[in-house]
Amino acid sequence: MIAGIDHFVLTVRSVDDTCAFYQRVLGFKRVDTPNLPTALLFGTQKINVHEAGHTFEPKAKTPTPGSADFCLVAARPLGEICASLEANGVAVEVGPVERIGARGPMMSVYFRDPDDNLVEVSEYSR
């Protein structure tokens, strides 16, 4: 019935700070469209970014900055992701470590964004 994820929403303290982080560290593209949430594009997906207190309807029951925990699939070798994290002063909390994802074994690193959301970036075994 379901083929994949189109987008998800992050509720954040500052749209500008969050977008700048994901653009700088992971190369996402920011898209601002009047009367719509700011979006961060990557691959064929996006993250809609809502600022706490200024969310769009419909929304989660209790949208809260820092409550997300998600995994992104790397388009480049995990070593490049780790180098970008280090170059941008982002501390790796865990990893690289082996995990099992939806498509099988993968290597992952975990870090926090400006709102302390837990971000996992993974590279599947080739």
Score class of each variant (00 low, 15 high):
A75H: 11
T18A: 02
L78H: 03
D16V: 08
K59L: 10
V15S: 06
P63V: 07
A87N: 07
R76V: 15
D6N: 12
R13P: 01
G4P: 10
N117L: 02
V92K: 03
H7Y: 09
E80R: 06
T62W: 09
F70K: 01
H50Q: 01
D32Q: 13
P105Q: 03
T44E: 09
A87R: 13
M107D: 09
G4I: 14
C71E: 03
H54E: 11
D17L: 10
P105K: 13
V121Y: 04
F111Q: 07
L10C: 03
D6Q: 07
D116Y: 12
S122A: 14
K29M: 12
K61T: 08
G79H: 01
C19G: 00
A60T: 09
M106F: 12
V97Y: 08
A87I: 05
V119C: 02
C71A: 14
I2P: 07
R76Q: 11
C82K: 13
P114D: 02
R112K: 15
N88Q: 06
T18E: 08
V49G: 04
P114S: 08
F70Y: 13
P77K: 12
S125F: 12
Q45P: 07
V94K: 15
S14K: 10
A60R: 01
P105F: 05
N48Y: 01
Y110T: 12
I100S: 08
V92W: 10
E57R: 05
R30W: 01
P114A: 03
K46E: 11
I2C: 05
K46C: 00
E120A: 11
A74F: 00
G43V: 09
P63G: 09
T33W: 03
N35Q: 13
N35W: 11
C19D: 04
F56S: 10
A91Q: 09
V12E: 02
A102R: 13
T11Y: 10
D32G: 02
A91E: 15
P77N: 13
A3M: 10
T64F: 02
P37Q: 11
H54T: 15
V9W: 03
M106C: 10
V25F: 00
T64C: 05
P58G: 06
M1T: 10
R76A: 13
D113W: 08
Q45L: 04
P63Q: 05
G27H: 05
F8M: 05
L41K: 12
G66H: 01
V90H: 10
R126A: 06
R112C: 00
E51H: 00
V25C: 04
F42L: 11
E120P: 12
P77D: 14
R24S: 14
V119A: 04
G43W: 04
R103V: 06
E98R: 14
M107W: 02
F111T: 08
G27A: 08
N35P: 01
G66S: 07
S67R: 04
Q45C: 13
